Simulated assay, not measured.
Amino acid sequence: MTASSPPTRTDPPSRTEQARQIAEPLAAVFRQEAERADRTEQLSATGVRAIKASGYPALTVPVRLGGFGASLHEFAAAQEILGRADASLALVAAMNAHLLGSVGEAGSWPEDVYAQLAHSSVNAGALSNSLASEPDLGSPSRGGLPSSSARRVEGGWRVSGLKTWSTGSEALDFLVVTAAVAEGETGAEVWRFVIPAGSEGVRVQQTWQGSLSLRGSGSHDVKFEDVFVPDDHALPPAAPLSPVRAASSGAWFWTAVAATYLGVGQAALDSFVEYANERVPTALGASIATLPKIQQAAGQMNLDLMSARTLLHHLTRRWAAEPEARPDLLPQLAGAKNLCTNAAVNVTDLALRAAGGAALTSGLPLERYFRDARAGLTHPPADDQALTLLGKQALGL
């Protein structure tokens, strides 16, 4: 009698792998939609439906509210997969994920307001975004008071203003809007107002055409004309948070950006490798992948991405494992954002140079990756801000 072999032991997937598994089917849809959305300069309705049906909006919702409860590292791993498929749709998903992740971690909102957005994302795939940029204000990360304003009325507030760079504007279910409030004798303060997208007086203006990058992101302007917001959806400036909790807002947004554009860079390398192996000039009689200059270009691209990814994953793992170290990790995450977005810029540039004239046509996606990667430089923190934060940390200031 022959003894049977012991059953093969299959370990359950890690939480990081589970987060990736949530992202992978969604990325497949993004990949199919990317070229058409870029060409038509339209946010893909198919892509939006896929996001809402995928479970990804619940990725960073805490477990206590029914979500997956992804850590910063698990979020980074999942978000890179989406960025590798399409930057535009990846950022629509990222805006909701970083908002719910950071607020849930910091506990900086009233629980009932946060729970409404969180439950909507878990149960209905709702998407939210924080709208803060304005034509005159520029990037809110540089400081300044928004031109958007809110005034008290019976039972709540009336909000008016114009917001720009509103990623995924047509797909959003909730808009978290910053506005100036003149309260008492303390001068104007910046409040946040949670506004359902279908509220009377909210109007998306179709301004996102002819952009260099992210043509399929639907980053239109949104106009608010005397929009009523009840008192319980008006969020005054939070009481000072502990340094550990206060670090969360920057960390989640910077990680969202870093991981998304790291994915863009990886997509460019993947596409270049495929092209290099398939391109066989008659004069060479072999694929151009056999040429040393092509191998060196691929090697440099790979090194740039490996370096950026290693730093991002190291820091996001520490963020989850060492909460007390978060204030010190925050400047380093700014550095990771710098490294990842610049890696994407460098890799897409190298891919275009090495592939030659074919890369300038829409026959290869390299020119789209090249354009999309440039947008990573515009997200806060800008390179000078990131380097200043790191420099101050190094100087002990």
Rank of each mutant, 00 (worst) to 15 (best):
M1T: 00
T2H: 14
S4R: 12
R9E: 14
D11Y: 06
P12S: 07
E17I: 15
I22P: 00
L26M: 08
V29K: 05
E41K: 03
L43W: 11
L59C: 08
V63S: 11
G66H: 13
A78Q: 09
S88Y: 09
A93V: 03
L99Y: 15
G101S: 08
V103I: 11
G107L: 12
P110W: 12
S120R: 08
S121G: 05
L131D: 13
D136P: 00
R142V: 11
S148L: 14
S148Y: 15
S149E: 14
S149R: 10
A150G: 06
R152V: 06
V153N: 10
G156F: 12
R158W: 14
R158V: 01
L162K: 03
V181G: 04
I195A: 10
I195H: 15
G198L: 14
Q205R: 08
Q206K: 06
G210R: 04
G216P: 01
V222F: 15
K223P: 02
K223Y: 12
V229Q: 10
P230R: 10
P236V: 04
A238K: 04
A238G: 03
S242C: 03
V244C: 01
R245T: 03
A247V: 05
A247C: 08
Y261K: 01
L262C: 02
L269I: 00
R279A: 02
A283G: 05
P292W: 13
K293G: 07
K293F: 14
A297Y: 15
G299V: 13
D304I: 00
S307F: 13
T310I: 04
L311M: 09
H313N: 08
L315Q: 09
R317S: 09
A320W: 13
R326E: 14
A336S: 06
K337C: 04
C340M: 03
V345I: 07
A351C: 05
A351D: 08
L360C: 02
P365M: 01
P365I: 00
E367H: 06
D372C: 00
G376T: 02
D383V: 10
L390N: 07
